[in-house]
Design a protein around this nucleic acid. Structure first.
Lengths: 137, 137
DNA sequence: ATAATTCCTATAAAGTCAATAGGAATTTAA
DNA sequence: TTAAATTCCTATTGACTTTATAGGAATTAT
């Protein structure tokens, strides 16, 4: 799985924050109730988003989170990369680069993994948070 | 990870078989030596490919495997789907379909997962085993 | 016959994922 | 000034998946 439930939930959190952007800081308790995701799991997810600088946070009573940028300025790629710790479709050294691969010089599969990686990356880069927001009806 | 090491190895096996297609049945011992993958793991991988009907096999002395079709008639998609047991980028019910999702009617993320799935699927469908074969030099 | 091979079932070790727990630090609001 | 609400931090757990390996049965060419 390229995108785990952490990434899926992160997207729902960001959408929720975008849809309530006019209400200042939104508490995780509110998001938990609306999205039916446990408070504790939400804490883990927003910790990642916050550390990466995607959110503003305020501690203490009537605190919470809000978006730091406009929805159209977040790409799905940046949101998902933060929560997943990198988006890689294949655990091959030619993509992860964490170890040397002796075969790389004549590896027939390398171009495929690199193109696949680019296709995915490009698509996720092309969609913004704003694209996901459903107008309230 | 959308594609595990089993899928990566499967591709290398298929390439190896394609490159030695003129030599009749190729034993896993030979592939193991060339590809530096353990015999036992190769057995597990070819079992999947064989059960799915992608290979011809012959047991006993001087037995082995060979391709059932021409390299240009295998898509990466069919090879990888067999060894991975399905290629799905996100563990969401809208793709796996193994359980009902109450949110689906107004889920803002569903179209993204479906498009991502299609992009990946289309790309892997468009590349054949023949495309991967490097002419010997 | 025998050697080489695929085929079958089981198992083990390591890693990842999904989620929870408990409490410290902070801040607002009563 | 105190109490309540909230984020923040570190740790842990159970389930599941991945990546193999082991032992031997069945089969077949030589």
């Amino acid at each position: 799985m390229i995108i785990s439930s952490k990434g899926r939930y992160a997207l729902r959190v960001m959408i929720d924050l975008a849809e309530h952007a006019d209400q200042g800081f939104i508490s995780l308790a509110d998001i938990s109730a609306r999205q039916e995701i446990s408070l504790k799991y939400l804490e883990a997810i927003t910790a990642l988003l916050n550390k990466a600088g995607l959110l503003d946070s305020l501690r203490g009573k009537s605190g919470g989170y809000k978006l730091k940028k406009k929805p159209e300025d977040y790409t799905l790629r940046e949101i998902l990369e933060v929560t997943e710790g990198g988006i890689v479709p294949v655990n091959c050294a030619c993509l992860t680069g964490d170890e040397e691969c002796e075969r790389s010089a004549l590896c027939p599969t390398m171009p495929v993994w690199q193109r696949l990686d680019k296709i995915i990356s490009d698509y996720l880069q092309s969609v913004t948070l704003k694209d996901l927001i459903t107008e309230s009806r």
